[in-house]
Amino acid sequence: MRKVALIVLLLGCVAPLALSLGYGLMYSLGLIGLQSEGFTLSFWAQLLSGEFARSIIYSAYVAGASTVLALGAALALLFSCRLHLRRALPYRLLFLPLTVPPLVAAFVVFQLLSGGGVLARAAWHFGLISDTQAFPELVHDPYGVGIIIAHGFLVFPFFLLVLLNIWDNEQLDELGRVAASLGVAKHRVFARIHLPLLMRGIFPLLALYVIFFMGAYDIPLVLGQSSPRMISVLVLEKLQRFNLADIPVAYAMASWYALLCIATIALLFTRFKRRYSL
């Protein structure tokens, strides 16, 4: 039965990925493809030319900022409104953003934050701006503000739900009281007891979300600028261009990004396996 288990896992999960990755790598090394002229590292070399590296750095920045925003908002709300969040209606409301698909969230953020959006109209009515150009760039902007806000909106309630769960499971109220009885000042209980335990509990999830945000597609597609683009958008754009020479570069990008994800998750898994009983 062990063999059957492993065969199904290999066939259903590992093989499709391995085959895909294998194809991507071979294409990017010039071994296959429409314009294949034999083994070459030139497409890989093009990755170093800047576009790919810029995209990876930009994706990492957006992923990091989105995670920090979502976590910061969740922590702030947890510490300011914890008792209120225990009530039935507020608790239920936290689930509301989870009903919104990323693509729709991106569309709504665009309708709210773009130059012709709801906020800009409100600003015009209050006499703050005279035309759409005067409104600050919040979508299609170089800092990815719109993308980060959309990510934060979708994920921060989920982080908050997880933090509330950790708070109960780890009995943080009780531990705080124990710390206080041992002489820790009330205002330091947060920094010395609550925050480290919450972070320890939520860390694997944060790591996963950084990876998810890095590979985000729907939201950057609607709200992102034209350069640099986030990695998923860039790969697809390269692949769907009419320039045939771009296709092996797109495969090189996809393969290296996939390898990066695999290496990261393997590292996280082995490093934190015991600590987080993964």
């Binding site: 896992l9 999960c13 499709p16 890095m214 590979g215 996809a254 996939a258 695999i262 990261t264």
Partner: peptide
């Protein structure tokens, strides 16, 4: 062995689709 399930889980679906 679970890593085998984690890999397709973490790669962006659209990038997976490109290669698949």
């Amino acid at each position: 062995w679970l890593l085998g399930a984690y890999f397709p889980y973490v790669i962006a679906p659209v990038v997976f689709a490109v290669m698949l």
